[in-house]
Design a protein around this nucleic acid. Structure first.
Lengths: 194, 194
DNA sequence: CCGATTATGGACCAATCAGTCCAGATAGAG
DNA sequence: CTCTATCTGGACTGATTGGTCCATAATCGG
């Protein structure tokens, strides 16, 4: 009908995501967001509602992308268990800056899950998605004999997601890559040796 | 020399800790703190310096108390591994409110470790203390034959701390107690069965 | 080319922020 | 009792907060 937006909405959300991810929700000001998104104040409020809605959209985007990435990397060509190990090991291989940034989902849970029901809900559904992905991989691993049949795939899936979230915290706390690698290896070995 | 303080410094820090724990650093205003501590503005600035120093003191207090509690609960009367299991299981047994509040140390890492070197340093040393405590318990468990000799105690210690931090996140994300129990059981069983 | 509709940017807002100042209260030392 | 050092509480600060208002610009359908 009328004048079209001058910016790419998707790109704007992505940039907002970067700021929220880096600084957290409270520590991010609307000015921070506008500068990063490269748009005007009114455009932001017209397009996204307010800071909180923009955050939710950024968080959902993050969860969607990160779950998709997880599922792709878990796709087991050769060995399901090796794929799991690669996923856990990947954190140790990140740059120091990436490890310090951590996982936006974990940051969101720590900062907001208690007081913000919408954040809690988004986090919960993302967790279920990841849990299920891990569970499927464990099932494949069982079929290939990489994991003994006595292992309950659902439990193992939860166990792996828990370890992944732990690694995110441990990494952000400044643990050296070698320590992260030890944890990753030990975790995967726990499944093999059951 | 002159007029003594009218409040108990220790108690004041403890109350500040409660507020920071509940709301996080950025979301806590100085007014929140004064109200909870029951002291005047000037008393707070005179005694603790500023909001940031007060936070650090509260965090250190939290880490000290929580590490002491961990070490006491890990003291293995009968079975070291059972003590570990009790520690992990305790999270699942907390009230919903306690699980939602999470661990102040994990919250601090997620919100501040990246940009606040002092918080990072406090968190790192607390992690080393807990890691060492877990390592000692694993060593005891090995001596008693609860854990096979092939298990590296240091690695296992790191693995356990990682799982504990993961549980803190998982719990705060709203996982039901049953799921937390599964993770705790699975984690401990990983050591037994190696 | 025109009118309806939407986007934009800068001025503006009240509220809140962390932190300071100061006047008066209070207690120990002598 | 007095002097002095500290503590206390409330008024106050400039800066920043998230969010709104409005005048102008730009684009579409007709």
């Amino acid at each position: 009908m009328a004048r079209p937006k001058e910016f790419d909405r998707d790109e704007a959300v992505r940039r907002a995501m970067g700021v929220f991810w880096e600084k957290g929700y409270e520590a991010t000001s609307t000015d921070d967001l506008l500068r990063a998104m490269g748009i005007g104040r009114q455009s932001m409020y017209d397009t996204f509602g307010d800071k909180h809605r923009l955050y939710l959209e950024a968080l959902q985007r993050y969860q969607a992308e990160s779950a998709a990435s997880l599922m792709e990397r878990l796709r087991a060509e050769d060995s399901p268990l090796a794929a799991v190990e690669r996923v856990l090991m990947a954190i140790a291989s990140e740059s120091a800056a990436e490890r310090a940034r951590g996982c936006m989902g974990v940051n969101a849970i720590a900062e907001l899950a208690q007081k913000d029901a919408e954040v809690a809900s988004v986090s919960k559904s993302a967790a279920m998605t990841c849990e299920a992905a891990f569970e499927r991989v464990v099932q494949q691993a069982k079929r290939r004999g990489e994991v003994p049949p006595s292992v309950d795939a659902r439990q193992a899936g939860r166990f792996l997601l828990n370890a992944l979230q732990g690694l995110r915290v441990t990494a952000k706390a400044g643990a050296p890559p070698a320590a992260l690698r030890e944890v990753a290896t030990f975790t995967v070995a726990s499944l093999r040796a059951r």
